[in-house]
Design a protein around this nucleic acid. Sequence first.
DNA 1: ATGCCGTGGAAACCACGA
Length: 258
Amino acid sequence: MRIATYNVNGVNGRLPVLLRWLEETQPDVACLQELKAPEEKFPLQAINDAGYNAIWHGQKSWNGVAILARGMEIEERVRVLPGDPEDMHSRYIEAVVNGIIIGCLYLPNGNPVDTPKFDYKLKWFERLTNHAKKLLKEDLPVILTGDYNVMPTELDVYKPERWTNDALFRPETREAFHKLVSQGWTDAIRKLYPHEKIYTFWDYFRDAYGRDAGLRIDHFLLSPNIADRLKAAGVDRYVRGWEKSSDHGPVWIELKDK
DNA sequence: ATGCCGTGGAAACCACGA
């Protein structure tokens, strides 16, 4: 079973790229972030025609998350991260697919630091951590995946010294990620490739993709009761080189059948 | 390197992203 995550940076503007990627790689489940489309502008027909069911939580202009599944039912659990009724951003959606709880998330960017945006990021991280702790008590296995907007270690940044004061790399942010993972989650890419430079994002500027000036910010966290089913993981980085690509590349894991 | 590009939405510029 292949599960993928892809920050599409605009689901409608990205539709040809998204459909080509789905067709070529055939993930069983695909979690999408940054739909940048209101609820009613989600391209459901095109996605259905590609063979996928979908649930999504859209929002005008920004954010937006979706879970797609090929030939499988998607049983929605929640579409808002618990813990703050005031938070109107569509950044989290969770469902059961094929006996696995899948949480699809788009963690706030948080820049610039020393503004409410950074506080919002850390608070959101705390809410995610609280929710994750509850999920670990479920009988079903859990996968928390998406755009975490954090480079966990220096290995995950092309030039760490340039990012020390960035919201994606600040000590508070990395500590928050570490605290979450320490509950017992497995960072799938790092489990299989502990020492390799692997990126999931390349800026549109300055030919970042051509120079491989990237970041690893899209992650898969696996609960202990599914971690031993991890067979393979990787980044479809060639997709980043396509015309009209997102600035993120799709990330995927392959699970053994039970 | 403090947004150089890209997206969406509103209004021919702005917010936001990482």
